[in-house]
Design a protein around this nucleic acid. Structure first.
Length: 362
DNA sequence: AATCCGGGGCG
DNA sequence: CGCCCAGGATT
């Protein structure tokens, strides 16, 4: 079927074509069966910078664990972080908890029902506010996410660098104009993102069966690979983590990460970071921890080594095993506490630590 | 405007 | 190995 008739302005046909495509191709996703702002919000926060296939199981677990905004507000933040474990960008979970508190206790459980009001809540930016406002309250406000930038840049041949402010404005203006063409903004927003996610993909978009083929600027000019324009360069920094895995009997010593750094409020082992890789344990910088180990512990040697890659850091981690005698009480360095396996399991931990623990098998 | 914040999947 | 994902907060 040809979605575009001669009398169609491209912008007029765009929304209608998108809706037609969506009805045939949309995935069955759990958050598409509700208009409850709590579940919409939960799904949107989980899906920030996260693929649907990765976020979906987390959404299911969160819905089961916290069926209402009040139940989430009442939860311990540590339990929230534990359920969030493995999703990354952990400040999302903490902002989510703050917003749950505010909505449950200050707004009597009722989410704000406008874009402008939603925007004020912690962890809700322009994208998420637009998503909730349109999906839950049918407000005619356009979402702008990575999918939308890509689809619009290609179809309308926009070459502005999407990192810049002026470009965001250009895209926003166009997106706003486009959503005016429909009386179902919720479906329109879902449709354009779904289209970007499963058809107009970043690499090898499926142009051969694309309904926009006749009008798509990128397709007509063969520029799919070069649109959208994104100048971003990823400067990856190397860091060297030396973990002292202190063990006494079946207990391990962990510490909450409270400093302003990655993995805030997650738990890991006694950490000594160095500027260069540590070849031998004796190269540890002199300090309390080294003195403590030499005096109290029995060094069992290098236990594991792995590289953990984040978006802008590459962490080279080495794990050194320290065993303490079981027959006496040894005071641990500040911040460290012993946990038995069952308690340790309940702590939120970076995947790097989770994976190492799996390799310990005890 | 630039930087920081995770983890995973895919070519 | 590089890119990018239903981005937001901070500086």
């Amino acid at each position: 079927m040809d979605w575009f008739s001669d009398s169609d302005d491209i912008k007029t046909g765009f929304a209608r074509t998108l809706s037609g495509w969506y009805e045939h191709h949309k995935r069955d996703l759990p958050w598409r069966h509700t208009r409850d702002p709590y579940f919409i919000w939960l799904s949107e926060v989980i899906l920030q910078q996260t693929r649907v296939v990765q976020g979906r199981p987390y959404y299911e677990r969160f819905v089961a664990a916290y069926p209402t905004v009040q139940s989430m507000a009442d939860a311990d933040e540590r339990d929230l972080l534990r359920l969030w474990q493995g999703l990354g960008y952990y400040s999302r979970a903490r902002n989510m908890h703050r917003t749950a508190h505010y909505v449950a206790n200050e707004l009597k459980g009722q989410f704000p029902n406008t874009y402008e009001a939603l925007l004020k809540l912690p962890g809700i930016g322009t994208y998420t506010a637009a998503a909730i406002a349109s999906f839950a309250f049918n407000e005619k406000v356009a979402v702008l996410d990575g999918n939308v930038y890509r689809v619009l840049a290609r179809v309308f041949g926009i070459e502005d660098d999407i990192i810049t402010g002026p470009a965001k404005k250009t895209f926003s203006r166009l997106a706003t104009e486009l959503i005016q063409q429909t009386d179902d903004p919720a479906t329109y927003n879902q449709a354009i993102m779904e289209f970007g996610a499963i058809q107009c993909t970043p690499v090898s978009p499926d142009c051969l069966i694309c309904p926009f083929q006749p009008v798509c600027d990128a397709y007509q000019t063969g520029r799919q690979r070069f649109l959208p324009v994104k100048s971003k360069k990823t400067a990856v920094r190397d860091r060297y983590f030396n973990y002292l895995v202190i063990r006494q009997g079946n207990r391990l010593a962990l510490k909450e990460r409270t400093q302003k750094d990655i993995w805030q409020h997650l738990y890991d082992f006694c950490l000594v970071e160095t500027e260069e890789p540590l070849e031998a344990f004796r190269e540890l910088p002199e300090g309390d921890v080294l003195n403590w180990v030499l005096q109290e512990g029995i060094l069992k040697g290098l236990s594991a080594e792995r590289t953990h890659v984040l978006s802008h850091q590459r962490i080279r981690a080495r794990f050194w095993r320290i065993d303490l005698p079981e027959d006496r009480t040894v005071p641990l360095p500040a911040g460290l506490f012993f946990y038995e396996p069952a308690d340790l399991e309940q702590l939120p931990k970076p995947i790097l630590v989770v994976d190492y623990l799996k390799s310990l098998h005890f």
